[in-house]
Amino acid sequence: MKRLFLSLTVTLAMLFVLTSCAKQPTQEMNDSKAAIDAVIADGGEKYANEEVKALNDQLTAATDEVKVQDGKFFKNYDKAKEMLAKVKADADALKAEIPARKEKAKNDATAALDAAKTAVTDAKALLAKAPKGKGTKADIEAMKADVAGLEASLTEAEGLIASEDYMAATDKANAAKDKAAQVAEQINQAMAKKK
């Protein structure tokens, strides 16, 4: 009987030592959360929105695993720690990738602005070829005002690039480019009518 009691005590003590002493991985949870926050602070929601959402979901899953273990008498946070380590590693990797994505967005915006500037310059060059004299046709005059409006939008796009709002700048520049091409086409048509 004595031996039975001893065996039981040893077994339970071993189980207690092996499992229930495990501590909640608070530090890992904080580190993972901080890593995601750092991604967001660097513009993650703008440049990697989908990945940020996935990271947050992973963090929630890891936190849920922690909660599962919290509720157990014999706790084992190994899986949760593994999950949290992955969240942190993924977040760190994404954070490292953000500058390159930002740079790409900047380059795209700059290229779109350059293309728009070229299109507006082309339209202006066409207007310069329009008939001169005491006055010109009303439509040519109107298109000069249109080109002035386009130039104003290029200035806006430049402002957006300066304020690092690259996507909005790209959208604006692309719109200006399309419109400049339309105006150029209209100038050509007006000049053809004049001939």
């Binding site: 005059e141 005002a145 959208d171 399309d178």
Partner: peptide, 27 residues
């Protein structure tokens, strides 16, 4: 604006409106 030979200012405003319209279409 074409009809009344008017609208250097108006045409600029209209161009801004058209650009916004183009952006809205793209979005």
């Amino acid at each position: 604006t074409l009809l009344i030979n008017e609208g250097r200012a108006a045409r600029r405003q209209l161009m801004s409106a058209e650009l916004l319209l183009t952006e809205a279409q793209r979005f």
